[in-house]
Amino acid sequence: MLVVVCVKQVPDTTQVQIDPVTNTLIREGVPFIVNPYDTHAVEQALRFKDRYGCRVVAISMGPPNAEATLRKALAQGADRAVLLSDRVFGGADTLATSKVLAAAIERLAQEDEVGVVICGKQTIDGDTAQVGPGIATRLDFAQLTLVDRVDELDLSARRIKVSRKLEGRHEHVEAPLPVLLTVVRELNRPRYPTVAMRLESADAQVEVWDNSVLGLDVNTIGLKGSPTWVSRIFSPERAKGEMLGDGAHDPEGAAQLLIDKMIEKDLLAL
């Protein structure tokens, strides 16, 4: 059985800023990293591999240099890596992205059964959390988002039990295979690659599939297949810190000011 894990190369968002003068993104020198949530997805896939002997395939859609992200998954222990890279995939929003990823998974499924697909909860650049559900829908897989614990994977009964982390509550759910999971950070602690694995992965083969492999209608993928587009970008207004009242002499007053602020900003869940 295959466990497919979807990973994305993202810019290190803490280092992305807008040039206040030209109002454009300053991209120079911003390094690319593996989407942090995806490292937990890879770890979960590897735990399935360790426990059940599944083969782990890491896939990613992105430019040719996104290969580095897949190498990291290989260094952690993934068995195979496929980069989906083609000009026509470019400029995709979540709808068009899930189309390509789902097609790639379908293609992998021709070789061996895909039992589980794992994605990070969301990416730190887009923060949409939409690609996972998109893939599940296109593949007609059961979908379990925000998984923070995997209780049981029963391969013979073909069912999985997990805990999902929602607002103020946890839900224990059971779903049939094949299933798509999106995972949160609390799920696990990603393993640190050994040097041997790193060196191994540096030379490992990362397969590159372009659209000639997937054969998708170019109007349904990439920019052309994306219903949404960015019309404007700008810097957020950064609220500067504010000192409230004179806490040293009037603690009551300062406390009241703070409560007023919290009410104003709708921070209270009373």
């Binding site: 390094p31 640190y192 040097v195």
Partner: peptide
């Protein structure tokens, strides 16, 4: 321990990742 076994106190994972990425 670090390079061959990947076994080290949990807190260091953060450090190693931060060093490598930033």
């Amino acid at each position: 321990l670090v390079e061959t076994e990947s076994k080290f106190p949990e807190e260091l994972l953060n450090l190693f990742e931060n060093m490598e990425q930033r």
